[in-house]
Design a protein around this nucleic acid. Structure first.
Length: 458
RNA sequence: GUGGAUGUAGCUCAGGGGUUAGAGCAUCGGAUUGUGGUUCCGAGGGUCGUGGGUUCAAUUCCCAUCUUCCACCCCA
């Protein structure tokens, strides 16, 4: 039988020990910050019922869901002959709903909303939770984009207070300060965006406007204008929108321009007021990283209703490495209305990419074996096993080479694994009861008692 | 879903319509069976992504397909 070339699905990755050490460094910092702010961990299944996931991320999102084929003879469950679904006139989604009822989660927010509704009577509100798990998207992979990646979510649900938004900004600041990444925290509010749509007389075109505005810094004013025209915005509306699109400079100037602009839009005024509250509180907190009120920030996920947040690394070319916002009614679809939540998600994989690119991992993070016992044979093995146990109970990470291989091979093993000390116990040492310790860095070698060895390696 | 690149040894990559396809690194053995990193010597390892076409002859040229990467869309 010809052996097949091993491979893994597109957009997924294996993580080597060296990579896991770096990834765990990031996860540990993020987790410790979450905990210090009073958030509690939960986990949810990798797969959810498709009905939980569908329709929550907009049309695009549905396409990017990985669907799981039903077990057993799934074609038997079809209401009519399978051949009908081969007709191109029949929509593929019709077939999908008959043969797949589960899907891999697309993010952690929607499963969290489901979790909250399902466990509402056990939870203490406002409920502050964090969740660090992989999510899956059937996207085309490219730089910084994977089909399986880890999100680190923090959310507060059951509180309308804008203090939560402020707290999330503090968490962002604390995490990236600890990771030594310089970031810009961009803030906006969906109500401000809705207000703009209202004020220019195109309230139904909110989505078109936000998507176009989001592209402003990438494609420029002309392209954005073209796109707006294509999507049916009138020239007079675009004309009114222009000064908003070009709004730059200090936060205060943005408020000065928007305030009169919103004189007929209550939604806009409300959004602006929320922004003012959040920004003023943040101003007094002296965050290490910069934040800005950026009216071109839109964010695609359709469930956001208030504040939206996005974080970009300043020194690396990478999409957003953290994002989130407030959703007023995500639990409503699952039967629990009036429960507002706000949360953010850190993209661990992108953060890892940025830190690798900028060389930000400290050199001291690898927790490797401290000492390797050389294996000289059966008698020596037995002797070493006891000493090994002593070192381990003293908390010294140590190992015994499992085979009586050539010394060169064992030394090479220690060398390649970066083990700083090698312990040699042959006939001589067994008789004298002493232990030879070799420092692999300096090459120097000494006879010691067990106590001395423990002291030396601790 | 759209567009552009890519695929040759475990890895990074040269090469070229015509005997036996190369290099560096890695692996294994030896110099050196109680002493690693450096050095030297040697060995193993390939259906040149897959399928088809052109040709006396294709790994090389052409077409298709898949893979990976990059960009768009969207996003972490």
């Amino acid at each position: 039988m010809a052996s097949q070339k091993p491979s893994i699905p597109k957009g997924t990755r294996d993580f080597s020990p060296a990579e896991m050490i770096r990834r765990n460094y990031i996860f540990d910092i993020i987790r410790s910050v979450f905990q210090v702010f009073g958030y509690q961990p939960i986990e949810t299944p990798a797969m959810e019922n498709l009905s939980t996931l569908m329709g929550k991320y907009g049309e695009e999102g549905d396409k990017l869901l990985f669907k799981i084929l039903n077990s057993g003879n799934y074609l038997d469950a079809l209401p009519e002959s399978a051949s009908r679904f081969l007709d191109p006139a029949v929509r593929l989604t019709d077939l999908t709903k008959h043969i797949a009822e589960k899907g891999l989660r697309y993010d952690l927010t929607v499963p969290f909303a489901r979790f909250v509704v399902q466990h509402q009577h056990e939870l203490i509100f406002p409920f502050k939770r964090y969740q660090i798990q992989p999510v899956w998207r059937a996207d085309r992979p490219q730089k910084g984009r994977y089909r399986e990646f880890f999100q680190c979510d923090v959310d507060v649900i059951g509180s309308n207070s804008l203090l939560n938004e402020v707290e999330l900004a503090q968490i962002i600041d604390a995490v990236f300060t600890k990771l030594d990444i310089n970031v810009l925290i961009r803030l906006n509010n969906r109500k401000v965006l809705a207000g703009i749509a209202e004020a220019i007389g195109a309230p139904d075109k909110l989505n078109v406007i936000t998507v176009a505005m989001d592209k402003l810094d990438k494609t420029g004013l002309d392209k954005v204008t073209d796109e707006l025209v294509e999507n049916g915005l009138t020239y007079s509306a675009i004309e009114k929108l222009q000064p908003i699109l070009l709004l730059e400079g200090k936060i205060k100037e943005k408020f000065d321009t928007l305030t009169p602009f919103f004189k007929d839009s209550e939604t806009g005024r409300k959004g602006l007021e929320e922004m003012r509250t959040v920004l003023l509180l943040l101003k007094d907190l002296n965050l290490k990283n910069k934040f800005d009120f950026d009216i071109t920030l839109a964010r695609g996920l359709s469930y956001y209703t208030g504040t939206i947040i996005e974080v970009k690394a300043l020194d690396a070319a990478m999409g957003s490495i953290c994002g989130g916002g407030r959703y007023d009614d995500l639990t409503g679809i699952f039967g629990l209305p009036g429960m507002s939540g706000v949360g953010i998600s850190f993209g661990a994989d992108r953060i890892c990419d940025v830190m690798t690119e900028l060389n930000l991992f400290p050199g001291t993070i690898q927790a490797a074996t401290r000492a390797l016992f050389i294996n000289f044979g059966t008698e020596e093995e037995k002797h070493c096993l006891k000493l090994l146990a002593s070192l381990r109970s003293a908390g010294i990470p140590s190992e015994l080479y499992p085979d009586a291989a050539k010394l060169k091979k064992q030394m090479e093993y220690a060398n390649r694994k970066n083990i700083p000390f090698v312990i040699l116990i042959g006939k001589d040492e067994m008789e004298s009861g002493k232990i030879t310790v070799k420092n692999m860095h300096s090459g120097e070698q000494k006879l010691n008692t067990l106590e001395e060895v423990i002291k030396l390696l601790s």
